Computed example of a mutant assay.
Amino acid sequence: MTTNDVLRALTPLIQARTEHPPAHPSAVTPDTRLEQDLRMDSMAIVHVLEDIENTYGVTIPDERLAGVYTVGDLMDIVRTTSGPGERIA
Rank of each mutant, 00 (worst) to 15 (best):
Y69E: 13
S26V: 11
A27N: 12
V28D: 07
R33F: 00
T29F: 10
T70A: 09
D31Q: 15
I52R: 04
R64A: 13
V46M: 10
G67A: 13
Y56G: 00
H47E: 15
T59C: 13
T59M: 15
T32F: 04
L74D: 05
A27V: 10
L49E: 13
T55N: 12
L49D: 12
T55D: 12
T55I: 10
T59L: 15
E35P: 00
E53F: 08
R39A: 14
V28E: 07
G72W: 03
T59H: 15
I52L: 12
E63S: 10
G72Y: 03
A66K: 09
V46Y: 03
I52Y: 11
G72K: 00
A44R: 09
T70E: 12
T29D: 07
V48W: 01
T59F: 15
L49A: 12
T29H: 11
I45F: 04
R64I: 10
L34V: 03
T70N: 08
I60V: 15
L38C: 07
L38V: 06
R39L: 14
L34N: 01
E50G: 13
D37M: 00
L34I: 05
E50N: 11
G72A: 04
S26D: 14
V48K: 02
T29G: 08
I60K: 09
T55M: 12
M43E: 06
G57M: 11
L49W: 12
P61F: 01
L65C: 02
A44F: 02
V46Q: 04
V48D: 05
D31L: 10
V28T: 10
D73H: 04
T29K: 14
I60Y: 11
A27Q: 14
G67W: 01
S42L: 06
I60G: 08
A27M: 14
L38H: 04
